[in-house]
């Protein structure tokens, strides 16, 4: 919840923004084990510590409900850390510059580009990747809807599309076709499966509302 602390007459808006409560600790490459002592939930300090460009720093990321500690360079993007450091390769990278949406994940419930987000900026945020939609080995409803409607071809943009739709239906339970088109308008599909993606999004919304089984 975003709050302007300085003024009493602030309105209470429903915030989709990210409020960050993460705190960073820094370790040299050679001192990993020692530095683990400073955990991510350490006391807030009034002064932040600068993370040097050339060293790895320990951060804690909340990914799919689990706290994951990882050593990162300041410049590493969240998509890089998810894929190359943590092996969560369901999140794809198509452009590495925020122009395709293949890397879309949820951050505090809203879709974001993980390729355009520094991992160090993602501390204290609830991160959900496509792997996080699974119930063990079972597909989540949005994934199931994509499967049923054949809402993909090569599949490389698909995780991102699914996360965009997941974010949409979580925030808008009964989206119109235009809502859906706008909702996935930050996700390119070069194969051109958009029409099927729209159908999948409608199905996903219906499933969430529980009307899917009634027809």
């Amino acid at each position: 919840m975003a709050k302007n602390q300085r003024d009493k007459d602030v309105e209470t808006t429903e915030s989709t923004g990210l409020s960050r409560r993460g705190f960073l600790t820094r370790v040299g490459v050679g001192a990993v084990s020692v530095a683990a002592a400073k955990s991510a939930t350490a006391q807030p300090t009034s002064r932040a510590q600068a993370l040097p460009a050339t060293e790895l720093s320990r951060i804690t990321l909340n990914i799919n409900g689990r706290q994951r500690q990882v050593l990162v360079e300041p410049r590493w993007t969240l998509s890089h850390v998810l894929r190359e450091e943590l092996g969560l390769t369901g999140t794809k990278v198509g452009c590495d510059r925020g122009e395709c949406g293949a890397c879309t994940i949820l951050m505090n419930g809203v879709p974001r580009y993980s390729c355009l987000t520094l991992a160090v900026e993602a501390e204290g945020v609830e991160i959900v990747t496509v792997e996080g939609l699974m119930d063990r080995e079972n597909l989540g409803p949005t994934q199931e809807a994509f499967l049923t409607e054949d809402a993909f071809q090569c599949g490389y943009c698909t995780s991102g599309q699914i996360m965009a739709v997941e974010g949409l239906v979580r925030n808008n339970p009964d989206p119109s076709v235009d809502d859906i088109r706008t909702g996935v308008s930050g996700n390119l599909c070069r194969c051109g499966a958009y029409a099927h993606i729209f159908a999948a999004a409608q199905r996903a919304a219906a499933e969430r509302q529980g009307v899917g089984g009634e027809s």
């Binding site: 794809k92 496509v130 994934q143 199931e144 994509f146 049923t148 993909f152 599949g155 995780s159």
Partner: peptide, 18 residues
Amino acid sequence: PRVDGYERVSGTAVYPAD
């Protein structure tokens, strides 16, 4: 639906970039 749909929507399909 596709025989490899599960892999493609679950994120378990491993592409060369992965």
